[in-house]
Design a protein around this nucleic acid. Structure first.
Lengths: 198, 198, 198, 198
DNA sequence: AATGAATGAGGATTCATTCAT
DNA sequence: GATGAATGAATCCTCATTCAT
């Protein structure tokens, strides 16, 4: 019983199914067939709406990134001082959702896909750029010209902790994850603006 | 013309071929056939010696990790103070070889493989554990009880920077890569042992 | 906004689109989807009007044959002697339009289709029969009873030259194409009616 | 029970199966699966030996052309005068084998394939070139400078008759097929060398 | 009159792996 | 010790076609 206006519904449910399937088949090879079956449609429909597997993967990752962005923005709005905003940013990266198996797997998929797909690479780089730029923006009032370099350090630490956590099957609470980052922020800020950064 | 004692030679050349093939096919799908062809043998021989593709991949990664370990130990031997050893450790992670395309690709392969292969996961965890333990060992004389927590932060930053670098096609010189880590070490050490870590 | 009387318009535009698409995809696999898109309608509409892909292909070929027939008849009307009519017939087969890529491709499609579709086969045979009959009609005053056999020879040469030309990407001017045929006509006519044909 | 030295056997049987399958599925879409099944092997083996469907098709056509060439050369050897050789050439084109359904279908396949495959196009052109050159070689002693033009006419007639015959399901005996060509040869030769060809 | 929705069937191709030699 | 032979299983993708709207 075909109905009109199904496109957005199908797209969304295929994207959801893709993410869920990433989590299940920890391997990268979530197939179009599996995803479609989970979404309750035929594989042909997935191709009809997304054109190719890669596009479906990309759409799934965009979905995750969009949600991450929304949460981050919301957290930033609630913070009032630069330091509070930096904390919020760090904590946003380690929200429980980010450690759901399917999200972790999606990130892994994504970083692999970025090796071959220019679209994925662009998306991934944009994400990193934004994160660094956000960090630098709030570091500037506190440490001045050293902000960009410090932002890079913080961003690296965030990324490193994320994959470290993602490697352990038992995932730590976000608080223990975020601690080293907060510590690093403390140290950088305490060092003050005068000191030249490497 | 079968010869005696070929086993170690064949194994080594298959491992080399696997690593080389990882670099060529940026995708994960280096096939047994391609690897065998590069090694100048039949795919059947690869199975004969390694049993399965996964084992060949693992052997390749072990090879890379062993070389990394050797280089690290050598560098540590040349350093005399704890701080010098910490520097050496950090620099070892960013030696040019670590950024050769095939090594980067091998790491990526490896982290994916670790999701499904218990052997790979064990190997990967052991590597991380050793790195953190090495760092903590040399941090202890400088900052005391805070050493383990600080080691985790440093290790995370190392990992984060590595993937960040690996994502860029144009790879930075190891000096700019190591800078944020040295900076972090400076800050942690300057803070001294008294201060409690988060 | 469905309108009345759209049927002939849609049919015509689908037929045109089919022919155009034959030219574009040199392969036989012009798909219903591509044709419909080019015609600015949905694939479902093509089925609505033509029932099946094959019927659409047939309609396209009928369209081409009808145009060819019209041009031929017009050329014949302008000719006054039997010999002039034979010339006109030969030249009609090599009019520039017959070498437009889409027409060449349509002929190829058609001759393939004729292997499986009785309708197409019937159409193709009728075309050949008419051509031979036309040739024989004008040969009879010149060579008498040998006319049918000679017509077969001329028709064969016409067909052979057409595919020969169609095979070369650079298509010769119609004059060089028609020359062997005119030559053959000259010879047959010069031989006169008395001589028995094989 | 795999045996050694199977490659040539498998290749040959796949080529045979392909030709047979061309005849059965009058359509162009003889699938690799069908061909492989007929040859008693898996589709994967067909790919193993031929790399791709197109190459298998090409090999099949080369096989047919080679046989045709062999027969032609044999017939030419038995002929002693130029005229006898021309007759032999014409008759060779219409030997019963050339009208076996699978051979007719292979030719059709081939001419379609030539639209998209440079390899097929090259092969097809070479065949035509050789035929014309053979004809011209034996026409020269009889009609001098007009030989090339006359050869083109004869070749066209041969091709035209072939497809004409191939279109009829009931295939005529080779004698009635070759008659118009012999007739044309008679006329051209009777006209002698002096007359300029168009 | 027209279409968006949906699919079943199928097809080329790839690949790890097995086994007799 | 080494390999050629062979395949089963899987995957992405395409397309004509149908149907409710």
């Amino acid at each position: 019983m075909p109905k009109l206006g199904m496109e957005p519904i199908r797209r969304a449910s295929l994207v959801d199914a893709a993410i869920a399937e990433f989590g299940r088949a920890r391997t990268l090879d979530a197939t179009v067939g599996q995803i479609a079956r989970r979404a309750g449609v035929s594989p042909a429909l997935a191709h009809h709406y997304f054109g190719a597997k890669e596009q479906l993967f990309l759409a799934a990752m965009r979905h995750i990134l969009r949600r991450f962005g929304d949460q981050t923005r919301a957290a930033l709005k609630r913070a009032e001082t630069p330091r509070a905003r930096l904390d919020a940013l760090a904590r946003a990266c380690f929200q429980p959702e980010q450690f759901h198996p399917e999200v972790v797997a999606a990130w892994r998929n994504f970083s692999v896909l970025a090796q071959t797909s220019p679209d994925a690479q662009r998306l991934l780089r944009r994400y990193h750029r934004r994160l660094r730029s956000n960090l630098a923006h709030d570091l500037r009032p506190l440490i001045g010209a050293r902000a960009p370099a410090a932002a890079a350090g913080v961003a690296a630490m965030l990324a490193g902790i994320y994959i470290g956590q993602a490697l352990n099957t038992a995932l730590a609470s976000d608080d223990s994850a975020v601690a080293p980052v907060l510590r690093h922020l403390d140290l950088e800020i305490a060092a003050g603006p005068s000191e030249p950064s490497a």
